[in-house]
Design a protein around this nucleic acid. Structure first.
Lengths: 217, 217
DNA sequence: CGGCATCCGTGACGATACTG
DNA sequence: CAGTATCGTCACGGATGCCG
């Protein structure tokens, strides 16, 4: 159980549950879908197994994460967010949105993951003018996809069944685009972004990312 | 300087700055206006002077808080949020919104402050159908006011110059109303809420609070 | 191999005391 | 009033080992 603040305040209550070190990053990982313990370890470089186990237990006790055993032959247990955790998405969105503006460049020793950047993109970019389209993204060797649906960008892990386009780009280039440090035309010209499939649709998504309002104040 | 996560991720970056214990609660206090060191100590029961000084230094270094010395004869130094801190408001809003749903009742030993609840109200309640109105609130002995303006509820510390109404209520009653544990009519009948001034306008605000969608899932 | 429990060194935290 | 200094305690991170 985590330490309390002894304050009858909604913010303090929220922080008692998700305010400890690593907790929101665990939620970030689970936002893209169910994960196994070791998947989480991989996605959270620097965390110790002890702390991860503790955080998962706390989150489970708070009713935000549920542990599920996959049916055979998978026979593996996965952790996933519950319905109560939707509010967490809003908190993470605010964090990602704000953190984007002070992301800067990768620091020495920083781990880089495509999912992290795509997740941030999904909340900071205005929704492009395409409806019900799926894009597959290959970012730094990882494969994920983004559904544009219901006026939202929904990122997911893994490949897409029938993507309109496959966009290959690395995470730092994505950040450069969103932060306005690189123009889309230049990125394409330098082949830092390549598209297979529907060029127009992909261009729409990428321009939305470039139009993201991220101010570097 | 705070500990890092060594991850090139916007969420991780944001958490490196505001993810430490107490930091967001310091921001919560400053959201209602500039505060002196000892005012912050009062508003953050449980924090130590050491930690508060450390957090303020970190926030100042991150450009989120500025230290200002008031002109004589006040001759006191106050801390206030900078323009860069607007993003913090969105994070705190998400926290308050979500935390409200799991606030429950005061626990043994919990400190209760009117400002905390009013701040949470301001972000969780739909804006009432009054425009450019100011309400003065007396909550648990504290005096604050709320401006309804530009489609927002803006809470502030201290008395209002010319309020449409003065509402006296305690913090737990406010929570009971927002959480649907108490109906407004009952609260008024039991005199747990009293209004001096424009009854209709005050009723509008209070009904908005009661209409807050807070689901106790 | 996944999912922890245990031990240990380090750093952050909380309480008290003290100073300009 | 606005902090700094000191110190005991607790949480964190790393390594290792256990058990299905």
């Amino acid at each position: 159980m985590s330490r309390t603040y002894q304050q009858y305040c909604p913010v303090a209550r929220a922080l008692e549950i998700v305010g400890e070190r690593w907790t929101l990053l665990v939620a970030r990982e689970l936002l893209l879908g169910p994960r196994r313990f070791t998947d989480l370890m991989d996605g959270l470089p620097g965390i110790s197994a002890t702390v991860l186990a503790s955080r998962l237990k706390d989150l489970e006790q708070a009713g935000l994460v549920s542990k599920r055993t996959l049916p055979p032959p998978a026979a593996s247990t996965v952790y996933e967010l519950t319905d109560r955790a939707v509010g967490l998405a809003r908190i993470l969105t605010a964090m990602a949105d704000w953190g984007m503006s002070m992301l800067g460049r990768p620091r020495k020793g920083d781990a880089v993951r495509g999912e992290w950047m795509v997740l941030a993109m999904a909340v900071t970019t205005p929704v492009p003018d395409v409806s019900d389209t799926t894009f597959e993204l290959h970012v730094d060797g990882e494969v994920l996809h983004v559904d544009v649906r219901d006026g939202r960008l929904q990122p997911r892990q893994g490949a897409a069944p029938d993507p309109a386009a496959i966009i290959t780009v690395n995470a730092t280039t994505l950040a450069d685009l969103a932060l306005g440090r690189l123009r889309l035309d230049d990125a394409v010209a330098k082949e830092r972004v390549t598209v297979v499939g529907d060029q127009t649709a992909a261009r729409g998504l990428l321009e939305s990312i470039s139009r993201a309002r991220v101010a570097i104040t």
